[in-house]
Structures are given as structure tokens and as C-alpha cells.
């Protein structure tokens, strides 16, 4: 990708970012409850009408929509996402504290996923329509059909309740605490990704150059690991970037199940307590993280593939 394309990509990203911010802002602007009342409720207080009216004026909630939006956006750009109603701390502080545990969890499940899905996907593609392919396909089929929160519960049942090998509550965020949440997240993703690896490798295996290499006498393992596999990584990197989305969504469910101290868990708590600024912050952060990851993936993809790099 040339500089020009990167720039146009960045420009596109800016438009989408603005859109994201508008949607995020609308989320709470359009919400049925009155934020001031909710703020008091979150603190366990019953406000009188006068207090509410005064507070509304102070917070600028009576200003026109655009004024409110730009004030909010300006604050966000200065790193001020407001204060959590329920927890009384700045949203930035709260999210920052939970960011690393969530990323750590996402990363670990991704590594697990790659360890499982790449060998299975390659195996399944190389032995297409052989028994091993059917077995892998059956496994992935069940893998994509099983809800991850149920997987999490079953894992707890087996490893924590029955075998007593691991802690039920992963609130410490240590490695041992992360094992089950990471496995839970990895199950569904591995199934999906195994299919994608299989498809990508199959597509490469059917390329002309494979026949060319065979005609030159090149050994099958060299064709597979020296050519087919590296080439199929190119589309797989893109899919990996996109799967970060479902990964980030999945973390919230899994974090709740295991009481893991991550952003998703925090967000779910925030929603139950109508903690709007915290919800806004969470949605905005995750969307931006997701977007940046995919931008990096796109750029790296274009760098890795010489066809992208060198063609006019």
C-alpha cells in the first residue's frame, strides 16, 4: 500500500471515527432514562425536583444536541470521558485499570486459537475429503454451534466443581485464573478459524504454481510449508484482524462468567447501574481498538504481499 492509499485509508477511518463517536453519543442521548436521576439512583439517593433541574442545567443537559455533542467530543479528545456515576472515579482511570487484563485474556485465547486451528486447518486441507478432513470438519461444526457461555459453565463444572483443579472465580487475573476464560473464548473462535485456515490453504493448494512446483520435482512438504502456507497466511491475517471483533465482544460474556476483572465485566456492571459515561467510554474505546488493529492488519498485509507493494 503506497503512502497515498494509507492516507486515504486514514481519511476514511476518520469519517468512520466521527460516525462512531456520534453513535456512541446518541446511545446515551436517546436513552429513555434521565441521566441525572440515574446518577442519583446509582448513588442510592432520591433527589427532589429542584436538585434535578439544577443539576441538569449545570451538566448542560438542556443545551441543543450539537452543543452537547461537541462539548462531549472535545472532552473525549482531551482524554476526559467523564466520571462514573456509580463508582465516582474518572472513566479513563477505571477503563485503563481493566484494559490490560482484557487484552491479556484476548491475547492468550488468540494464541490458543492459533495453536489449535492452524495445524487442524492445514491438516484438513491437505487431506481434503479423507477421513481426517471429515473429523476436523465435524469438530469445527460442533465448535461453531456451541454457545461460548455454556462452554464456560461446563468447564467450570468439570474443572472447578468436579475436579477442583482451578479456581471458580478468576478475579485475580493471574495466569491460573486466565486458563479457563481463555479456553472458553478459544473454543468457538478456533472452530471458525480452522474453517478459514482450511479454505485459505485449499485455495492456495489449487493455485497454478503448485502444479508448476510439482512439475519441477519440488517435494510436497517444501511446496506446502515453503509456498502454500506462507501465501495462505496473507488472507488469514486479515481474518485474524476481523475476528478480534468477536473476540472483544466475547470477552464481556466470558469475563462475567468467570468474574474476571476486565473491561467487559466492568461494562456489564455499568449497564446494570445505568452508568452512562462508563458505557460510552467502553464502547468508544473498544471500537477504536478494533479499528486500529484492523488498520495495522491492512497495512501489514499490503507490506507483506509483494503484489500489493509493487504493482503500479
Amino acid at each position: 500500500m503506497g503512502k497515498k492509499q494509507i492516507l486515504s485509508r486514514l481519511a476514511q477511518m476518520l469519517i468512520v471515527l466521527i460516525g462512531i463517536s456520534v453513535i456512541t453519543f446518541l446511545l446515551t442521548y436517546l436513552s429513555p432514562g434521565d441521566p441525572v436521576r440515574n446518577m442519583y439512583l446509582a448513588q442510592g439517593l432520591m433527589p427532589d425536583e429542584e436538585q434535578v433541574a439544577q443539576q441538569r442545567e449545570e451538566m448542560g443537559l438542556n443545551d441543543p444536541f450539537l452543543t452537547q455533542y461537541f462539548r462531549w467530543l472535545g472532552n473525549c479528545l482531551h482524554g476526559n470521558f467523564g466520571n462514573s456515576f456509580a463508582l465516582g472515579k474518572p472513566v479513563v482511570t477505571l477503563l485503563l485499570a481493566r484494559l490490560w487484563p482484557t487484552l491479556k485474556l484476548a491475547l492468550m485465547s488468540m494464541v490458543l486459537m492459533l495453536l489449535v486451528s492452524v495445524p487442524l486447518g492445514v491438516l484438513s486441507a491437505v487431506y481434503q475429503d479423507k477421513p481426517i478432513d471429515y473429523i476436523v470438519r465435524a469438530i469445527t461444526f460442533f465448535g461453531v454451534s456451541i454457545p461460548n457461555f455454556w462452554v464456560g459453565l461446563l468447564l467450570i463444572l468439570v474443572f472447578c466443581v468436579q475436579l477442583r483443579l482451578l479456581p471458580v472465580v478468576s478475579s485475580g487475573g493471574t495466569f491460573k485464573d486466565m486458563i479457563l476464560p481463555a479456553v472458553t473464548l478459544a473454543v468457538a473462535m478456533s472452530a471458525k478459524y480452522t474453517r478459514q485456515v482450511r479454505t485459505a490453504v485449499l485455495e492456495e493448494l489449487h493455485s497454478d504454481y503448485v502444479i508448476g512446483a510439482r512439475a519441477r520435482g519440488v517435494a510436497e512438504w517444501k511446496i506446502l510449508w515453503g509456498n502454500v502456507f506462507p501465501n495462505s497466511l496473507l488472507p488469514l491475517i486479515t481474518m485474524l484482524g476481523l475476528s478480534v471483533g468477536s473476540l472483544l465482544g466475547g470477552t464481556s460474556v466470558v469475563e462475567v462468567i468467570f468474574s474476571y476483572p476486565g473491561m467487559g465485566n466492568l461494562a456489564v456492571q455499568a449497564i446494570t447501574s445505568y452508568d452512562y459515561y462508563l458505557i460510552q467510554g467502553y464502547v468508544l474505546w473498544v471500537a477504536v481498538i478494533y479499528m486500529v488493529i484492523n488498520l495495522l492488519v491492512d497495512i501489514s498485509y499490503n507490506y507483506v504481499d509483494p503484489r500489493m507493494r509493487l504493482r503500479r
Partner: peptide
């Protein structure tokens, strides 16, 4: 562009927020 923006959010994350805020 609207579709792009929706896709820019990880699906379940936005869904959780929408469901939570709508009640």
C-alpha cells in the same frame, strides 16, 4: 458509510450497550 460505522463496532459490544440502555 452507515454500514461501515456499524461494522466498525465489535457486534456484541454495541449490542450489549444498546440492549442495556434501551432496557
Amino acid at each position: 458509510r452507515l454500514a461501515d460505522m456499524m461494522i466498525a463496532f465489535p457486534g456484541l459490544v454495541l449490542a450489549i450497550a444498546v440492549a442495556g440502555i434501551l432496557g
